[in-house]
Design a protein around this nucleic acid. Structure first.
Lengths: 336, 336
DNA sequence: TTGAAAGCGCTACCAG
DNA sequence: CTGGTAGCGCTTTCAA
């Protein structure tokens, strides 16, 4: 591997001079600079970022840890994060925790050992507290994204889950629905909790009873859902609409209904958060509270880098990004 | 930051002993090991991967560079790559070249300077040759994935584009189509070229004429496509079916047809490669030659790591992954 | 304007 | 079984 010493020898200068040329620091004569540059070209020199990081104590790498890389919401978020990181001269180390605390912990370990400058992450659940505390202990700046963790005060970019749920329920009520179920993620995830809060508040604001029987906590995994669907239809009176905790749950519910010959929106309306992309193709198109996924990533990275570079106020900052109600074809008036 | 020297001092041993405990090398008394372990726990010690890499000349990082992170084919591929990398104890540094040679070049520079152990990449086009040569010059192992680059002999995992195109055209011919257009990517991308080859071969095998007028080279970007669509309908005889170069082009064509009030498959059948995910929801579901995206990533990383670790034969290996014809609802008999 | 020495945190190598 | 020394490639500090 070619090092600054190889360049130095070839150019008849010291390693320091080469270093100065690379970093544009100090005063160097044009002639020396030109010669060094020439030799670097000739020898295909590429600086060793690790050696550099070791002495500078700075890697210019930020980590993005999401819970599901195949979910379009996170893909788009990742894209925003990547663009922003690039624009600020940082590299992005991507990880996927799969909603799994063990994997998350392993990734945090990796992150710590890589000495990345900062971390943007979607905590798997409230139990991620331990991992976030590890980051704090090691002085690694981080920004929580999409989800909050109780007991941790840190920079965060989150959505307006309560408001989104309220809008969605209001929409269903306007259509005439009176019995609305919630199939949400488990309540150890802040978004699931808040969507539940919004659901409850909206029901009460509309003078409808809140009934625990209508609330299903299932994992965000599709297979966990079948049981809920079973019980859903055993209820009396049966719900005519469902608020799904996220885009994938909505998809799972729809597929489950189809297998049972239940039509959406005819027999069961569905509303949810975020989208699955391909707006023009998906049928039915879900009625959804769509969050600005790209912006989540972009803003998250920007806040993170401000923090890393000491340009952020000391107080943790919490940014709430609003969602937009998109009326699709997964909702209609309840059947008589 | 806590180092092995801090641990050493606290445990009353030398740094070397700490190093040996960390790496499980050499012989250490159980008592010493226990003491060192204890101190490491207590001080929240996390090894510095960079310092380690610097001396070992090994980072345990592999890079994945794709051309479009929002394309589900690449997302799924990335997921396969990530799982495989993790399983082998490597970290994944993700990049997105956006089909852009300049971005690609920048990423290769970053990759080189990070001294990653290897690279898995989808070359943006034949002009990526220069970048691949840079990797070779620096002795960085890499595996080309999804696309070949003429003039470069290297490990590669590619699809059977020719075979896929033939199956798709055969299917259309069986349905009764006689005038079939090709809207492909630009021919400086190997998959676009090969899909064109398969298209041509299949036409000839079916005794149909190959007509250059029916072949449209458009970028893989949706906006480049409108012109092609315009000309498509000016043709006489007008085609009744189209082979779209990839999933996103198929999507763009469909959207374009819808805006013009042209029905699929009624007035125009569409076939393509890969899918957009959400098989049950998309309407129409494209008839497609679906490639094993996850396997692309998984196998690519596996081959890469074999190469890195010297477990691969010296000769470059080229693995072709077959696709599967999925009959969807975007194809039907031509209208009389 | 340029260079020499020291050290970032770690491990290979050789001694004991 | 344990420790000392040297060096990975780079930049900071001080000196010339």
């Amino acid at each position: 591997m070619v090092t600054i010493y190889d360049i130095a020898k070839q150019a008849n200068v010291s390693a320091m001079t080469v270093s100065r040329v690379i970093n544009n620091t100090g005063r160097i004569s044009d002639k020396t600079r030109a010669k060094v540059r020439h030799v670097m070209e000739e020898m295909n020199y590429v600086p060793n970022a690790m050696a550099r990081s070791l002495v500078l104590q700075k890697t210019n790498i930020v980590s993005l840890l999401v819970t599901d890389i195949t979910n379009p919401f996170y893909t788009t978020l990742a894209r925003g994060a990547e663009d922003a990181a690039r624009a600020h001269g940082y590299k992005l180390l991507l990880g996927n925790s799969d909603e799994d605390l063990v994997k998350e912990k392993e990734y945090i370990e990796t992150i710590l050992s890589t000495r990345v400058d900062g971390v943007l992450l979607t905590p798997a659940s409230d139990n991620s507290k331990e991992q976030l505390e590890a980051l704090m202990r090691h002085g690694t700046p981080f920004v929580a994204i999409d989800r909050d963790v109780p007991g941790i005060t840190c920079d965060a970019v989150v959505g307006d889950s309560v408001g989104g749920a309220r809008k969605l329920i209001d929409h269903l009520v306007e259509l005439g629905h009176r019995v609305i179920a919630l199939v949400g993620g488990t309540f150890d995830v802040s978004t699931a909790r808040e969507r539940h809060d919004g659901y409850r508040e909206a029901l009460e604001a509309n003078g409808l009873p809140y009934d625990e029987q209508l609330v299903f906590q299932t994992g965000y995994r599709l297979q966990d859902m079948e049981q809920a669907v079973e019980r859903l239809f055993a209820l009396n009176p049966a719900p005519t609409a469902i608020l799904a905790g996220n885009n994938l749950l909505a998809l799972g519910l729809l597929q489950s209904f189809r297998r049972r010959g239940i039509e959406t929106p005819g027999q069961m309306s569905i509303v949810t958060f975020d989208s699955l992309g391909y707006r023009d193709l998906i049928d039915p198109l879900f009625t959804t509270a769509e969050q600005p996924a790209y912006r989540f990533g972009e803003l998250g990275i920007t806040m993170l880098i401000e923090r890393i570079e000491g340009r952020a106020e000391v107080q943790p900052r919490r940014k709430v990004l609003l969602n937009e109600l998109i009326i699709g074809s997964s909702t209609g008036e309840p059947q008589p």
